[in-house]
């Protein structure tokens, strides 16, 4: 069992090649191979919550589709809970839950509860457990009063919470979330994140989360994997990602009056001056405190704020460096 626990999801040199046909003439067609996932290897232990990020078209969704078994890898070895997904898709389906942020599993025209009754039958959930899980989801995802509302009348945030509940009624051991907070407002995002954190802590559900939202990762995942052009670029803690990408945070300081650029110790530097406001960039791996103390000591400081680097910029920088190396 320990083998399965430390490598609950096992991806070993997996690749996925799509053949794309392009028209090159009136009747001529050129065949081209697109490598969506290229020699990808990683393992996820049972109960881990891992962020899986990368730019659009990086291969995130292709990976998730292979992990659910709806796409067959062109090469390599893939196991989820010891099951080969594409060979035993149906058997695996009982043990995993999937939420695609931009798609819905719910019955559009019918009240939410009808979709849940369908899940009850589809996953053959024992009645008592179905009741219990539904009550729990309704409470934690605040679906009370929404069960009798047709799905088409739900807001995006409500629908997303409805979809997450639908994916969890059968107690999946693994939950794949493909951009679960896309398009949600701040309150809805916080609700979804809170629920996922609790699910992972209480039930030990393994979670693989793809997102474009750095805050999702910061608040939920201790580990992050970065994929680009089908290859794993980084696998480790989020803090390490900033180091690897040599990303910078920005300290925005408002001074009492216009002053020449503040003298700060390298590698920090002033990148912009606009009236009494100055922007100071410093490595994301460093604490802002000494820098703030230093500035406060030499300048008349009115206000300040720290801006975090955004994930796309970090990845873009990382990729540019790999390409030139």
């Amino acid at each position: 069992m320990t083998g399965v626990d430390t490598a609950f999801i096992e991806v070993d040199r997996v690749e996925k090649v799509f053949e794309v046909r392009r028209k090159t003439g009136l009747l001529k067609r050129e065949r081209r191979q697109v490598r969506a996932v290229d020699a990808l290897s990683f393992t996820v232990a049972r109960g881990e919550m891992v962020g899986y990020i990368g730019p659009n078209g990086a291969g995130k969704s292709t990976t998730i589709k292979m992990l659910t078994g709806i796409l067959t890898p062109s090469g390599g070895r893939l196991r989820v809970a010891g099951i080969d997904p594409s060979r035993e898709r149906t058997r695996l389906a009982h043990r995993i839950g999937v939420v695609f942020g931009q798609r819905t599993t719910l019955w559009w025209d019918l009240p939410l509860i009808d979709s849940y009754r369908l899940m009850h039958r589809m996953y053959r959930i024992p009645d008592a457990r179905y009741r219990e899980n539904l009550d729990r989801c309704v409470e934690l995802l605040e679906l009370d009063g929404l069960l009798d509302v047709p799905v088409r009348q739900l807001s995006l945030g409500q629908r997303m919470r409805g979809d997450i509940a639908a994916a969890l009624l059968h107690d999946p051991e693994v939950l794949y979330l493909d951009e679960p907070t896309i398009g949600l407002d701040v309150v809805s995002k916080a609700r979804v994140r809170g629920f996922l954190r609790e699910l992972n802590a209480e039930r030990g559900t393994t979670v693989l989360l793809t997102t474009h939202d750095l805050q999702d990762i910061e608040q939920l995942c201790s580990r992050v994997m970065v994929i680009d052009h089908g290859r794993l670029m980084y696998d480790g803690p989020l803090a390490g990602l900033h180091e690897a990408g040599e990303s910078e945070r920005t300290l925005v300081v408002d001074l009492e009056r216009e002053l020449p650029p503040i003298e700060v110790p390298a590698p920090a530097r002033v990148v912009r001056v606009q009236g009494p406001r100055q922007w100071v960039a410093f490595p994301a791996s460093q604490s802002a405190a000494p820098l703030v103390a230093r500035i406060a000591a030499v300048c008349p400081l009115v206000d300040l704020s720290v801006r975090e680097p955004d994930i796309e910029a970090v990845i873009a920088k990382m990729y540019a460096e790999k390409a030139t190396a």
């Binding site: 078994g69 898709r89 389906a93």
Partner: peptide, 11 residues
């Protein structure tokens, strides 16, 4: 592509 949802179900 919503068919993906239908395909990963145990049905």
């Amino acid at each position: 592509g919503d068919i993906a949802v239908d395909l990963y179900r145990p049905a």
